[in-house]
Amino acid sequence: MKKEKIYSIWFLMPAFVIFAVFFLIPVLSSFFYSLTIWDFKTFTFCGFDNYVMFFSEPSLNTSLIHTLVYAFMTSGLKVLFAFFIALFLTSKIRTKSFIRSAVFFPNLVSAIAVGITFTTLMHPTKGIINIIIKALGGSTVNFLGDPNIALFSVIAVDVWKGVSIATVIYIAGIQSIDSTYYEAAQIDGATFWQRVWNVTLPMCAPAMDSVIILSLIGGLRCFDLIWAMTGGGPGFATDVIASVVYKQYAAGFYGLSTAGNVIMLVLISIIAFPLQHFLIKREEALS
């Protein structure tokens, strides 16, 4: 029997049809609707007005910068912290399965629940974090109310929630390294940190690439946690593209909202695709 007949294309169709109808078609049509003023029923073509508006209005275009800061900082911190946690959890300590579980659990809790928890822990006067800061002799910080700090507070919580996935990926990468490399390094008299730098780090490059790409895309698309913790405020201090899309939708500016959606898509494409290409190239060069 022919391959085409055994592995019939019809097996592929249910999944593809659902995906095409409910994902691809809306994405394609969003390019068109972003050029209009519309209300789901009628539309008026308005050229690039929505985009001009998005990039010229300060309350909107700062969301671009916030999104980039948010994505690159969460990604960078996860790449860094997760590596050391993974290094620690692949050492000879005996409580690693407990620690791994503790690190992993926040990942299963919804962003809204995490947001509520940390909003109270970060309460400007009664929050436990500020009580600790005060007890240590510092002055209290208005984590979510100060426009200069709010974005970084949410970033910290995002890292807290998401560092586990990165850690787990690193652990898998580190465990797959052949132990003969370490033995060879040890015979050559390499210290612990020399082994980490020259063996572990380059050998788990594929894991690191997964962490970078996954956390970067997650950061660029982030909505739930920011919405639960600050709702984009104070003012527009923590507005990211996804929250602008929602706000403009709630305010009835559907064209502007759709343009925001397209801008997010383009931003992710111009960052993620070349980065992935570069990382794969580098991986090939290393191996």
Partner: peptide, 16 residues
């Protein structure tokens, strides 16, 4: 679909 964000308002129109 692993990378790109869904287009929300066009999806609402489609569902309607």
């Amino acid at each position: 679909g692993l990378m790109l964000p869904p287009a929300i308002l066009p999806t609402i129109k489609l569902l309607q």
